[in-house]
Design a protein around this nucleic acid. Sequence first.
RNA 1: GGCCCGUUCGUCUAGGGGUUAGGACGCCAGGUUUUCAUCCUGGUAACACGGGUUCAAAUCCCGUACGGGCUGCCA
Length: 514
Amino acid sequence: MEKPRVRFAPSPTGALHIGGVRTALYNYLLAKRFNGTFILRIEDTDQTRYVPGAEKYIIDSLEWLGLSIDEGPGQGGEYGPYRQSERKALYGKYAQQLIDNGHAYYAFDTPDELDKRREEEKEKGKHSFKYDAGMRMSMRNSLSLPAAEVEQLLSSEAPYAIRLKIPTDEVVLINDIVRGEVRFQSNELDDKIILKGDGMPTYHLANIVDDHLMKISHVIRGEEWLPSTAHHILLYRALGWEETMPVFAHLPLILKPNGKGKLSKRDGDKLGIPVFPLSWEGATEEESFKGFREFGFLPQAALNFLAFLGWNPGTEQEMFSLTELCEAFSLEKIGKAGARFDIDKAKWFNQQYIIAQNNATLAEMVRPMIAAKGFSPNTAFLQTFCGMMKERVTLLPDFWTAGYYFFSNELEYDAKTVRKKWKPENKAFFAEIKQLLASLDPFEAANIKTTIVGHMEANELGFGDVLPIVRVAVSGTVKGPDIFEIMELLGREEIQVRLAKGFATFDEMKAPSA
RNA sequence: GGCCCGUUCGUCUAGGGGUUAGGACGCCAGGUUUUCAUCCUGGUAACACGGGUUCAAAUCCCGUACGGGCUGCCA
C-alpha cells in the first residue's frame, strides 16, 4: 500500500468521547502500519458549539495514549492550517465554483422558515420534509426565484446559504472497506447546505475540500456518517475530484454496556464507568466527567481494550502493545456490528498491564497517590510495596485502598477474625511472640517465619490459630501478600508497635459491651 | 414514517459451504497458597426466525423479526 494519509477530525465541542478515541486509534494504526501520516484536523466550523479547552483536551488525550500526531495545529505540516475556522476563505471559493458549474445554488429560506415548514409537514401526517429535487422549486432559492430577485437578494444584506443540487435518478455507489458496496438512490437525498449563512462551511463541504487538499487517502470514521457519504461522493464528483477520492471505512458504533444504543456520556456517571480518556472539567458538575486515567487505567490497557472493540487480529493473541498493534492492524479485520462496552474486560486488561509493569515504574505512578494521603516513603520501600501488591490490584487506586496499611498504622481491624481467633488462652503465647521478635536480628522474612512457626509448634498451635491474628494485628485484614515479607518491610520497631496496639485493641473488641 | 447498516456463548470475538462451532472476559468447580490475589486444570454457555439454492448451509440468496444509525444553516 502507498503511504496512507489519514486524519482524525474531531469537533472541539467538549471532551473527546471514547468512540472518538477509538476512531483516532484506528486512523493512527493504519498510518503507522504502512508508514503513513496521521493528521489531526480540528473541525470547528460551528462557532455556536465551540468550547474553549476542548482542542487542548483532544491533544492531551492523544498524547496520554501515545498517539503522536504528524501534522496538526501546533504541530505544523505543509497542508495547514489544520483548524477549519482558519481555512474559511477556501471553502467559499469552492462553494462559488459549485454555483458556477450548476452543482449548487443560493437558498434564501431562513432557519425559522424551514422550521415552520417542517412543523407543517409533520402536522399533515408524516415528518417527511426534505429539501430535495421535488421540494426545491417551492422554496426560496436561486433556482425558483426570478433572476432579478435573486440578484437583488444577493446584493442586499439578506443572509443566504448555499445548497448542493442533488442530481435526479442516479445511483450512488459507495465502496466501503468494512461494509462492502452500499447504494443510495440520489432521489432519496436532500439538497444539503454546504455553506452556512455566516459564511462557514458545513461539515460536508469542509470535509471534502480539506480531505482533497490534504491528500487524504482513507476516511476512517464512525458509522453515523454512512448516510451522508452519498452526498460526499456527489460533492467529489461535482468538484471534479472523484478520481482521487479517498476510500471509506465506516466503523461500528460502541454500544452501552447494558441495554441498547450507543454509549453516551450519561452512561459514565450512571454506571460509574469512564467514557472519556481524561477527566473533563465542565462548567457544572453535570457537565464534568471522570476519565480512564483518573479511574486508574494505564494508557496501554485503555488502548488495548479499545483496539479490540470492533477489531481483532484473527489470532488468539490478546495483549498488544501500541507497536504490536501497528504491525497487526488491518482495516479488513474490522467488524461490522456494534460492540458493547465491557468494563470487566477493560479492568482485566488493566490488571494484566499493572502486573507486567516493573516495580520502579509502578512506584512512580503510585507515589503521588500515596503523597496525597500524607505519606512520603522512600523509593526502595515503595518499589517493594508495589512488587508485593501488584498482583492484587486492578486499578491504580487499589494500591492505596488495598495496601494503605503499609503506610498508616491506623488500622481497621477485621472484626470477624478477631472474634473467632482472639482466644484468652492464647494471649500469653502472642505476648511471647512479640517478645521474641523484639530482639530478632536480622529482622527478615525467613527469620521471622522460623521464629513464629517454631514457637507455634512448640505450643502445639496451628497456622490457623496464629497467622490470622498476627496478620490482622499488622495489617488489619486477612487479605494481602506474604505476612512475613510485610513484617520485614515494615521493620522491627513498627511491628512492635502494631503488635502491642493490635493485641490491646483485640481485648477491647472482645470485651463484653457493658 | 423514509433511507441505510447490523445480528455466532451474558460480553468481546474466530470461523465465510462438510469443524466435537475455537479463544478471551465474566461466572462456577478443583488445584497451588498460612490468607487474599496471581497462576494452573476443568466446567457453564452461542450460529435471531422462516423460506430457498445445494448431496451438504452458522457460512450463499430472499423475506421476517429485533437492534442500531441518519433524517439540522451539528459534527
